Computed example of a mutant assay.
Amino acid sequence: MKPRLRIAILTRNFDPMGGGAERYAVALAERLAARHEVHVFAQHIAHPAPSLTYHRLPALKKPRWLNQLLFAFLTHRRTQAGFDIVHAHENGWAGDVQTVHVRPMRHNLLGDIRGMRRGLRWLKIATSPRLATYLWLERSRFSPCPGRKVVAVSATLREEVATSYPESAACLAVIPPGVALPDKPPAQAEARQALGLPEGFPLLLFVANDLARKGLDTVLQALRDTTPALPLRPHLAVVGGNPGQIDHYRRLAATLGLEGQVHFLGPQRAMSMVYATADLLIHPTREDTFGMVVLEAMAHGLPVVVSRAPWCGLAADLSEKEAWLLDHPNDAQALAQAIQRLLTEEALRARLAQNGPVVAARYAWDDIAKRHEALYREMLEARCAS
Rank of each mutant, 00 (worst) to 15 (best):
N13S: 13
P16N: 05
G19W: 01
A21T: 07
R23C: 00
V26A: 07
A27W: 09
L32P: 01
R35W: 09
E37L: 03
I45F: 09
H47E: 13
S51N: 14
H55V: 12
L57N: 07
R64I: 08
L69F: 10
F71M: 12
L74P: 03
Q80M: 11
G82Q: 01
F83V: 01
I85Q: 02
H87S: 03
N91R: 15
G95P: 06
G95K: 05
V97P: 06
T99V: 11
T99S: 04
V100W: 09
H101K: 01
V102R: 02
M105S: 09
H107I: 00
N108P: 00
L109A: 09
G111E: 11
G111V: 02
D112K: 10
R114H: 12
G119E: 14
L120W: 15
S128R: 07
S128Q: 06
T133H: 09
R139I: 00
S140V: 00
S143I: 06
P144L: 06
G147S: 12
G147Q: 13
A162Q: 12
V174A: 02
I175Y: 12
I175H: 12
P177N: 15
P177D: 09
G178R: 07
D183M: 14
D183N: 14
K184N: 14
K184A: 15
P185L: 09
Q193R: 14
G196R: 01
G200M: 11
L203G: 09
L203D: 03
L205K: 07
D210G: 01
D210I: 01
A212C: 02
L216P: 07
L220I: 06
L220T: 08
A222P: 11
A222T: 11
A222E: 06
D225F: 00
T226Y: 05
T227P: 00
R233Y: 03
P234S: 08
H235Q: 13
L236S: 04
V238W: 04
G240N: 12
H248R: 15
Y249W: 08
L252A: 09
A254K: 08
L256S: 08
E259R: 12
E259I: 05
E259W: 03
G260H: 06
A270M: 08
S272R: 07
S272T: 14
V274Q: 00
Y275I: 13
A276C: 05
I282H: 05
R286Q: 10
T289V: 10
G291F: 09
M292G: 05
V294G: 04
M298D: 02
V305L: 12
V305A: 11
V306K: 03
V306Q: 08
S307M: 05
S307I: 03
R308Y: 04
A316W: 01
D317T: 10
L318I: 05
S319N: 05
A323R: 06
L326V: 13
L326C: 14
D327K: 11
H328Q: 08
P329Y: 08
P329G: 11
N330W: 04
D331K: 13
E345W: 07
A350M: 01
R351D: 12
V358Q: 12
V358D: 04
Y363N: 01
W365A: 00
W365S: 02
D366N: 10
I368N: 13
I368V: 15
A374M: 06
L375A: 03
Y376Q: 04
R377M: 11
R377W: 15
E381H: 08
R383P: 07
C384S: 14
C384N: 07
A385R: 15
A385Y: 07
